[in-house]
Design a protein around this nucleic acid. Structure first.
Lengths: 246, 246
DNA sequence: AGAGGTTGCGAACACTGTGCGCGTCTGCGT
DNA sequence: ACGCAGACGCGCACAGTGTTCGCAACCTCT
């Protein structure tokens, strides 16, 4: 409103505050950091590059963010908002909790694969983040498993999350390696196979497993990974179901 | 090297052999790198510091190791040798496989907690390492689960390993955070609790969980973590047992 | 209009991983 | 016993990193 006041005689000399960018704000910084992380991986993110991307100097970012580690915390909490958890009501029936848990797990995995750097950060800093989105995520999980009837919901959650984190981390790291190679997943497997089989020489079970993978994996690696995740998830859910009082 | 120790280059001051260090070898470098990683964490390891620790210049290391990433691969394989797996015979009976799997899982966890940087590296690079020790580890796992009678041993292994990796990673990251704070685990929890409870305000289930933790955790955090790991492991093993043909 | 606080930025510091070229040392073939 | 090729260690240098500091420009309120 006060911006309408024109201290300069000519309209043309008056730049409308910031014509290109909506200034430099904490949320804008975090959002752009996530974009860069998604695009080029975790080691490609530097404060200078991030600043440049925002038409700003590197050190300007420190007005809104204390340190790079804090920026990473914020980025983690930012993408944590994407993880969905079905409402607790879905679990109250008795059979519904399994579908709900499956859906929650799938959402976590999808998010972790969409932002492969997430696993790296979690591996280094853990889950002690306390960001609002992560908190509300934990809360919804707790509500779901409490409604399902688990006497110790946090135990069940820890178990499920450990499996999902472990699988997603491994998968994300794999996909990062593949992406960095420039090949498609099938090509990369084909190119890696000789080395793997040679390294497995003398290890009978491994050699057999690799021989299996050599013929099955190039067909549809994505479906294979999906199936692997679903298998382990069912195992965990079966085990949890046994703990559910009937 | 002899010239460096002598302030005056002269025939008379020259020492003809270097009795202090057993030269600079790949294995010595890797071994010392592991020591440094264990002591000060992953971000404290630099080529210069490592070189200094070995009475050598930083760039000398590159005669034995192509790059720092390769050094990390070697370090991972080095500590992978510490993970034990019971012999496959232990599983052949029928009931023995469970105890064997539990033992293998415990050994993995113990190694991951002894070398907390391991999880960080795995989170960034995955398991596509192909080092001899990791290969033989996989082989022994495959032998164990094949002997146990699993029709698809790799599926069972992936499931179990995902859980173990996820839990160990989270735990290692937590312990790293604690260690960096300088407090004991109990003190750290006590110091973190107010912030956690405030962040949990409005989240009923979380608040309750934290209230529980506030009274239970300071007693014996180690035993609590052990129990948590054992609980989830039993869940996974129960689920796997259902897949075992009888 | 002046004061006070907020924001952006350039320069600088202490580091990092790593390529290059040079000197030295070692072991082998004669 | 000699000479030489290759391995080895190292100082220098380069490009880049996160972060601090002091200064200038701006916005808002009195």
């Amino acid at each position: 409103m006060a911006a309408k006041a024109n201290p300069v005689p000519s309209v043309w000399t008056r730049q409308q505050s910031a014509p290109d960018q909506p200034a430099l704000s904490r949320t804008a910084i975090v959002r752009e950091a996530v974009v860069m992380l998604d695009a080029d991986g975790i080691e490609a993110l530097s404060m200078r590059k991030l600043g440049a991307r925002l038409n700003a100097g590197a050190t300007s970012l420190y007005r809104h963010v204390a340190t790079k580690d804090e920026l990473m915390e914020l980025a983690v909490d930012e993408v944590a908002a994407e993880i969905t958890v079905p409402p607790a009501d879905a679990a109250r029936g008795g059979a519904g909790w399994r579908a709900a848990a499956t859906e929650a797990a799938a959402s976590f995995r999808a998010t972790a694969l969409r932002h492969p750097w997430l696993s790296s950060v979690l591996g280094q800093a853990g889950l002690a983040y306390l960001g609002p989105n992560l908190m509300s995520y934990s809360e919804r999980l707790a509500a779901l498993f409490t409604a399902a009837g688990f006497p110790e919901p946090s135990r069940a959650i820890d178990t499920l999350l450990s499996y999902v984190i472990g699988m997603s981390t491994t998968e994300a790291a794999w996909l990062t390696t593949v992406a960095r190679s420039g090949d498609t997943e099938g090509e990369f497997i084909a190119r890696l196979m000789p080395a793997a089989q040679q390294a497995a020489a003398g290890h009978d079970h491994l050699a057999e497993a690799y021989a299996d993978a050599a013929v099955r994996a190039p067909v549809d690696p994505v479906a294979l990974r999906d199936a692997k995740f679903a298998y382990g998830l069912d195992v965990v859910l079966d085990g949890l179901e046994m703990r559910l009082p009937r």
